[in-house]
Amino acid sequence: MKSAVVLLPGLNRDRDMIAALTKISGQAPATVWQTDTEIPDVDLIAIPGGFSFGDYLRCGAIAARMPVMRAVAEKAAKGVMVIGVCNGFQILVEAGMLPGALMRNSSLKFVCRQVKLQIANANTMFTRRYQPGQIIRSPVAHHDGNYFADAETLARLEGEGQVVFRYAEGTNPNGSINDIAGIINDKGNVLGLMPHPENLIEAAHGGSDGRALFEGALGIAA
């Protein structure tokens, strides 16, 4: 299974994502730059975390309008899996590929710590290696992770099982509605989440709870 990582000025978790994909899949992902209009033939496209374009205007707003994101949307429409982590999630929301919005943390503080996540839907390409309701650990590091959607959108997300990750056991770090940490699109191939599973994939990270997400998406045996 092949993967690609989107590079944009101001991202800073791109190397972590490349390292995780390389270690888990055994081959280095292709990289695509913001001005690229074509993405190689891959099974998974990852948009890493960071502060693309300095978070100017709104987090992810400028990045979402770069040419490469049109190419990502075209691939997603053809069924290619897309994962956006942290700023990548904000970019997918700003690009209209996922519903809702990510607002300033309710505490107004940047949070950098480990949280607990509940697998709210284990029936996705990304979470099929977890058990329904399983609690896993994951680091978070963000200032704008407070997920918001209007009542109608929220009801649809909850009703259709599009809420995939929820902050568990009182660890919601940002005030997100319904403790939402990650959602998937209605087709089930575009996932966005604020936590960083790519930073918990091996013993050196202090745990490997995030590894199964990439193994599931890439169809790699554990």
């Binding site: 205007l57 709104r58 707003a61 309008r65 519903p99 809702g100 918001f148 209007d150």
Partner: peptide, 9 residues
């Protein structure tokens, strides 16, 4: 509509 406002919020 296209950039300056996020009409979701």
């Amino acid at each position: 509509d296209k950039l300056l406002a996020n009409t979701v919020i």
